[in-house]
Write a protein that binds this DNA or RNA. Sequence first.
DNA 1: CTTGAACTTCGTATGTCATACGGAGATGAT
DNA 2: ATCATCTCCGTATGACATACGAAGTTCAAG
Lengths: 255, 255
Amino acid sequence: MTARDNPDLVRLDLIWGRTPRRARGPRPSLTLERITDVAIELADASGLEAVSMKRLAERLQVGTMTLYTYVPDKATLLALMLDRAVGEAALPEAVEDWREQLRQSAEVLLALYRRHPWAMQIDIEGPPLAPNQLRYLESLLQALSKTGLGRKEMLDTALSLTYFVLGAAKTTSGLLDAERTSSLSHEEIRERRAEAVRRVLDPAEFPLAREAMAASADGSPSGGLWDSLGFAFGLDRFIDGIAAYAEARGGGAKA
Amino acid sequence: MTARDNPDLVRLDLIWGRTPRRARGPRPSLTLERITDVAIELADASGLEAVSMKRLAERLQVGTMTLYTYVPDKATLLALMLDRAVGEAALPEAVEDWREQLRQSAEVLLALYRRHPWAMQIDIEGPPLAPNQLRYLESLLQALSKTGLGRKEMLDTALSLTYFVLGAAKTTSGLLDAERTSSLSHEEIRERRAEAVRRVLDPAEFPLAREAMAASADGSPSGGLWDSLGFAFGLDRFIDGIAAYAEARGGGAKA
DNA sequence: CTTGAACTTCGTATGTCATACGGAGATGAT
DNA sequence: ATCATCTCCGTATGACATACGAAGTTCAAG
C-alpha cells in the first residue's frame, strides 16, 4: 500500500518530513517549518482559536489559499504544531535512578503543556506516531528498562504516565488560562473563586470535599486552593506503585 | 458579591438550576433540561461538532435565537451538557474495600467518556464546581476516607485518579472514534495502522518502542495493538502506590 | 380595566471560519 | 520550444456564533 492509497499516510509522511520531491514548478516561497513556527507563535500569544488560516497567511505575507499548497487541511497543520511543540521538550538524560528520570520526564511534559496550553486541545485521530512523540515514548521506555518489567508492562506504564500528565495539565489549564487571559488581578480571581466555592459547596451534601478543600487552601502559601492540585503527590504514588510491582516480580531494580 | 456582578456566577447558578424566578412575561415553551438533553442526543449521534445552535433549535422546533433566552452563550450550554453527562455515571455504592471502590469509580468514569466522547472535548474555564462533578469527587473522597490519609492527601489522590482516567480516555478516544466513524472495516483499519507503524517505527531509532508494541500486539486477542493501552495496569499501580503510602504513614487502612 | 414593565420569540444582519474551484503565471524536463 | 506540473491566490460557498431590535405575551400595579 502506498501513501497515495491512504490519506492517513499522506499526513504521516508530511509530519515525518518526507515530502516526495518538487521538480516541475516554481520554488515554494515558504517552508512547512516556517508555517508551523508562525502558527505556534500565534497560538502561544493568543490561543488556538486565534490560529485561522487567514490570520496565519497574513502573518506570512501570502494569500490564504497559498497555505493549502503546503498542507492538505488545517487538521494536518495542527498535528504538525503539536509534534513540533513536543519536540521542544528537552528529554532528561538517562540517569541510573529510573524513578528520578520518570519524574523528570513527567515534569518536562507538564511544563510543555503549561507553555503551550493549546497543545492539549488538539485532537489527534489515529495512533500517536509523530516523530517527537515517539522519541518521548522511547525515552520513557529506556528509563523503564531498568526496572525489570516485561515489555508489555513497560509500554502500559509509559502510556499511563502520559495519561496522568495530560489529564492533570488539562484539568488545571482552564484555571491557569483564566489567570493569564483575564484583565483581573490574581487576587480578584482568587476572591471570585472563593466566592463561587462558598456559594456552591453545601457542607451538608459535600462534607469531605469541603474539608479537603479547606485543608488544601490552608496548606498553600498564597492561600490559593487551585495551585498544585496533586500533581506531584499523584505522580510519586504512581511511581511507588510501579517500583513495588517491579520488585515483587523479582525484577532487577534495586531499592 | 451577587451574581449580577460576576458573570461566572451567572453560569454557575444556571448549572445548579438556580434560576431566579420568571414572573412577568409569557411562559417559556422549553426547559433547560430539554435543551440539554436534545443537545446530548445530537452529540452522541453525530459528535460535538454537530451541535450547532441552528441544528439544536431545529430539533426543538424553535428559532435559533430562542435558545439565547435560556442560555447566555454556547459555552454555558456545553458546560450544562458536560455536567448532565457526568450525572449519568452511577456512583458505585460504598463498599468496605476502598481499593475496589476506587477501581470501580475509575471504570465508571472511563465508561462515561466512552459513551459520550464529546464530553472530553469540552474545556471548562474555572474550577470544576458543577453539581455532578462535585458528587463524583465526594464519592471518591468517601472511599478514600477509609485509608487514613490526611485531608489534603485525599484530595490530591482523588484528583489524580480523575487525571489518569481523563488522560487515558482522551488519548485512546481518537482511535475508537475512527473505528466508529470510518466506513472501513475494523480489519481494514487495523491493517492501515499496522502499515503506518511499519512505515514509521525504525528499529534503529526506536528499538524499545518497537519491541514493546510487538509484545503488546501479540498479547492482545485480536492482534490489535491499540486496544487496552494500559488503563487497567496503570490504575492498579496507582492504587498500589496509594495503599503503600497510607500504610507507611501508619494509617488505619488494613491491607 | 387599563397600562406598561418584563418577558419570550425569532428574522435579519454581521463578521468569522475552512476550504472548493479555477485561472494565471513560473519552471524545468523533454 | 513545448507543455506538464507546480505555486500562488481571488472569489465563492456554506457553515458558524451571536448582536440587535421588533413583535407579541403575560401579569402586577394603578
